[in-house]
Design a protein around this nucleic acid. Structure first.
Lengths: 246, 246
DNA sequence: TCGTATTTGTACGTATGTATT
DNA sequence: AAATACATACGTACAAATACG
């Protein structure tokens, strides 16, 4: 379990390489939106894999929203490939991903405090535990546009071999966590009013509306990794996502 | 294609019934968070299915966030089952689903207009097409809390056998569409300011901030079903969703 | 309209690889 | 080192939806 952030293994399953090839084909336009892909039997033979393996690749393509499968019809290339960007439904860094202006400066600071009762709950900590509080301010063109309050069990930071004196190293660790894979979240999104402290940080008058994203991140092992509150200034953010039917 | 809204077939695949049984077991607490489920071979034998079929059921459980699979370890029951509600990542009716107060009244109206250039694009219509504009106002405790502008190709409504004089019938059709399955969306979420018309409808002063969700819905066949803009009043909404790593 | 061919969906069985305990 | 458990991969067969003559 020492590898919260693990390197990819070199071993790549067959169905993944097939999936990657097919993705490439679609990107190249070898098959265009509306086209029917060759039948699964044919493709399987072309790739020299069994049909089952090929179907695993198809499933990945479908999850990406690249194709649509239908019994009797075939596998059809879909047209909405523009929206391939990382939507909100994927774990990432919304403050950076969805800002309408490029983030060009980041300011990080870190502190430590005993776990509050809420932290004990959502981060599954003991009362004696220490929680790292990472504050991150995001700037665009010299102005603050977003702010993050990240709560992380000290243990996690500890295992990450982070230099707590080097703020850049702390921020990089945070980014690496977010992109490390195998994470999922409980996320809540709402609007609220800017209050005292935030008003100073984001340079927004008190009482103004602001977008708040609050979430807990867990590993695939169900281990809490962090809890964070993200503040995004109005008018500067547009969150995109892909929704699917149940 | 006449069945944009289709009834479920009676035929239920084996792996789905297995999945449903397992879901039931977890709900009943037969296996608790942190527990390891019996091995796949054992479960397969219990259900009298092949291991492959059982694994299809496991995949569904995993997608629901109910279990986590790990090679060599087993299938572990996860703890975050509270958040089983329909998150924003699933197609639904956010104005109703995420309002902190219960919606107790809905006011629907409908009109028709030629497809604008934008509609022609996102709804894939010809210039001569007619678009239905459905306006829906949502009330809670006598006050308007949300507003929807739904644009739908006339064709879709037509196939739905909707009584255009009966506003309740129109709204029910809209709801049925949203829950009909096999849909996906391109969704954008942002904050904006209340302007003239909306100010009157939602009874909010002009210039106030408001949450806007704008999206296009498509069928699994890549056919545009509707384009809509949802307005949700501040402080009254909290959108929850589940994010996953790529 | 009705078969028939095509194509994907479901299900089984088997074997081997790889991670964890 | 060995046992256990999930992951990958192959092959086969039939069912069900669709397309087409």
């Amino acid at each position: 379990m020492d590898k919260l952030i693990k390197e990819k293994n070199v071993k790549i399953p067959l169905y993944v390489t097939v999936y990657e090839t097919l993705t490439q084909w679609l990107k190249e336009g070898k098959y265009k939106p509306g086209d029917k892909l060759p039948g699964e039997n044919i493709l399987a033979e072309q790739f020299q894999v069994s049909r089952g393996t090929l179907r695993q690749a198809m499933l990945l393509l479908q999850e990406d929203g690249l194709i649509s499968n239908h019994q009797g019809k075939g596998n059809i290339v879909l047209s909405n490939q523009d929206m391939q960007s990382n939507g909100l439904e994927k774990v990432g860094n919304p403050i950076v991903d969805f800002c309408l202006q490029p983030i060009d400066k980041v300011d990080t600071s870190i502190g430590f405090q005993p776990a509050t009762q809420k932290h004990q709950q959502v981060l599954k900590l003991r009362p004696s535990s220490i929680v790292a509080v990472i504050d991150i301010t995001y700037y665009s063109k010299g102005h603050p546009v977003g702010f993050a309050m990240v709560y992380m069990p000290h243990e996690i930071l500890d295992k990450g071999n982070v230099d707590l004196e080097d703020m850049d190293s702390v921020y990089q660790f945070y980014l690496k966590l977010l992109s490390s894979g195998g994470l999922y979240s409980n996320t809540k999104l709402r609007m609220s009013r800017v209050r005292e402290r935030l008003s100073g940080i984001l340079n927004i008058p008190e009482g103004e509306a602001i977008l708040i994203l609050e979430e807990q991140l867990y590993t695939e092992y169900d281990i809490p990794v962090l809890s964070q509150k993200l503040y995004m200034g109005t008018d500067l953010y547009e969150l995109s996502l892909r929704r699917k039917s149940k």
